[in-house]
Design a protein around this nucleic acid. Structure first.
Lengths: 192, 192
DNA sequence: TGTACATCAGTGAACGCGCGTTCACTGATGTAC
DNA sequence: TGTACATCAGTGAACGCGCGTTCACTGATGTAC
């Protein structure tokens, strides 16, 4: 097996990006190398540069894919579901399938340009999803939906980041999630 | 100059921890190495292990110091000041002097044990500081102060993490900070 | 207080290792006739 | 449709480099007498 159908090559490329999207969130951009990423994709490291011009290039693409997955999993859901899924034990614990902002966004300013822009675009998308979720729930009467969406976006991200930072103290971490979720749901009920 | 007063040695050690507390927040734990850290402290890398048993050891100590600095800068301040300082352009931009939770907390679960516990303790301290700030403001009447403190803690951390993740889009990043702060201040005014 | 020796903070060379990246090579796929 | 050749996805060895850590050494400080 050397050289492969164009379709197979495209599938390989996609597989690498999917693997990277998981592994980067799980271990951090610096926590996994090109060789291990290729091995986890069932390949050897040498072929990497047939698909990507650099690790940074893959970081940008993998992050973009992670935001697309977040969008797919979240859009067209009632705001209560959205918050319930985001502010949860399973989201805290399964970083590799979770929101890229909470997993990697804290270091976005340390990254090179292609990656930074992907994060900025992902944050905008994330806010718009919440706004849409608020609008869908009820025939828009009150207030500034955009501002409400931004507030809920920060509360959700903050809850997960804080719960992960506190993870060594399980009781505290759980308290942060439970309190954050119940107060967010109360406030959403008040809006609707 | 080889061998130095016990006081000087202690001062050197402190200087390394202070440098590390800044550099780790700025560049990330993986973003700066032992040799560069020692150079930034005016030393050569060889002496590192006279003071610390490993880089992880320093990471734990530096993070603990960063939380102490946060506590010093923040406690006994009215809640409005606390939020105004935290949710600000300068806090977003000057990561090296800012809150360790927003700078490094997202990766706490990827760290080894001494470090994880320091983050958990730091988060607890941070929540307690907000709770105290709420209590000081007015003679405790209503509601669950602890829950209010947790909510405000997540809103502050979330605002900074989101603003940093969105930094490549300056307008969006500023919008997140402005909206988060004004809504947090409104809610605090409602509580008091 | 003065002398002799042990301690140990700091130096700089060296260690093995894993990193991102490059390269010559392979051989089935894709293409030109 | 069949043949001849070019392309290029994937392999695995090799590159230079920076990492965390170790070590023999230095010489002023600290200590024992």
């Amino acid at each position: 097996m050397m050289r492969v159908t164009k379709e197979q090559a495209q599938a390989t490329r996609r597989r690498i990006v999917e693997t990277a999207a998981e592994q980067f969130r799980d271990r951090g951009f610096d926590g996994i190398g090109v060789a291990d990423l290729m091995k986890a994709s069932g390949l050897t490291h040498g072929g990497f540069y047939r698909h990507f011009s650099s690790k940074d290039d893959l970081m940008a693409e993998a992050t973009a894919l992670a935001y697309e997955q977040l969008e797919r999993d979240t859009s067209n859901k009632p705001i209560e579901d959205l918050l319930g899924r985001y502010i949860s034990d399973s989201h805290r614990d399964e970083i590799s399938a979770g929101c890229p902002t909470s997993a990697l966004g804290g270091g976005a300013m340390r990254q090179m340009e292609p990656v930074r822009s992907v994060f900025a675009q992902g944050v905008e998308t994330w806010i718009e999803m919440i706004e849409k979720s608020l609008d869908d729930g009820n025939a828009a009467i009150d207030g500034d939906r955009r501002a409400q969406a931004i507030e809920l976006a920060t509360r959700a991200v903050g809850a997960i980041v804080l719960a992960r930072a506190a993870a060594a103290n399980g009781r505290l971490s759980d308290e942060i999630l439970a309190t954050s979720l119940s107060r967010a749901l109360e406030d959403v009920a008040r809006i609707d």
